[in-house]
Amino acid sequence: MRVFRGVAALVAIFGLVLQYGVLVATSPDLFLWMTFKFVSFFTILTNTLIALAFALPLFRPGTLFERPAVRMAVAAYAVVMVVIYAVILAPLEPPHEGANLVANTVLHRVTPALYLFDWLVSRGKGKLRWSDAWKLLIAPLIYGLYTLLHGPLSGFYPYPFFNVPKDGLGQVMLNLAGIVLFFYAVGLVLVAIGHAIAWRMAQIRPPS
């Protein structure tokens, strides 16, 4: 698995660097403003977490990213990112081409798939608790509140469901609540899957 995780980390980093390069080449914004917008997308933050989750344990065993609850949280973020992009965002975007198509595919499909596969086959899922589904909500809540705070100051809302000037604060808060509940539901499903896999592995493990 070390080789797989090393390659997967490189794939995740490649996707992030390529997407940033596309933004640099196509954006008329100033460098700092462009960079701010880049790191304001949940997709970028999630792929960064995936890259860290793959890479850091290879160099420093025992890191935070090896804890079952943290690994499950990153898997939940990946699932939500993929679903929201496929259902809500992709239909609103024009067709991607060239390097942008490659970067988009890596960030929204390849990297999440690699991480979810790694999570499914890794050990430790039997240690997950149902309360871990609540704990994974901290990051999405912070991200949502951060977006709503900087939006009025920056005028930039990375996603249409956070666009306060267009939809109003009340609707956006409802959107945020719905998204948070979706995160929680995904977390519960992943905990259940983790327990089921751990139970199955215990059944087929030969007696010592």
Rank of each mutant, 00 (worst) to 15 (best):
D132E: 12
D132N: 15
S154N: 04
V121G: 02
Y115C: 04
K127P: 03
G124L: 02
F117P: 06
I138A: 15
L153W: 14
L141Y: 06
S131L: 15
T105S: 14
T147M: 13
S122H: 09
L149Q: 06
I138P: 07
L116S: 14
Y115N: 05
S131C: 10
W130G: 09
K125F: 04
K127R: 13
V110N: 06
L153Y: 11
R109K: 04
P112Y: 01
K125N: 07
N104A: 03
I142W: 01
L136C: 11
S122K: 04
G151T: 12
G126Q: 08
Y143W: 10
D118A: 15
V110R: 01
Y115Q: 08
L153A: 13
V121F: 05
H150I: 14
A103Y: 02
K127V: 05
G124Q: 02
K127S: 14
R129L: 08
L114D: 00
A113H: 01
R109A: 02
S122A: 06
H150W: 08
L137M: 15
P140T: 01
V110K: 02
L136H: 08
G126W: 12
W130S: 03
G144E: 05
S122F: 04
L136V: 09
V110D: 03
H108T: 03
T147C: 05
L148T: 10
A113P: 03
K135M: 13
D118W: 13
L136E: 08
G144Y: 06
S154I: 07
S122V: 01
A133R: 11
R129D: 10
A139Q: 09
P152K: 13
I138Y: 10
Y115A: 07
I138E: 07
T147H: 04
W134F: 15
S154K: 07
L153R: 10
V121P: 03
S122C: 09
L137K: 07
P112W: 00
L136Y: 10
H150G: 02
W134K: 12
H150T: 07
D132T: 13
D132R: 13
R109F: 03
W134T: 12
G124A: 00
L141K: 05
R129E: 14
T111I: 03
D118R: 07
L128N: 05
L128Y: 11
V121K: 02
L107Q: 03
T147G: 12
S154W: 04
V110F: 03
G151Q: 13
W130E: 05
Y143E: 06
K127F: 05
K135E: 15
L137Y: 08
D118K: 08
T111L: 02
W130T: 06
L148H: 07
A103I: 10
G126S: 10
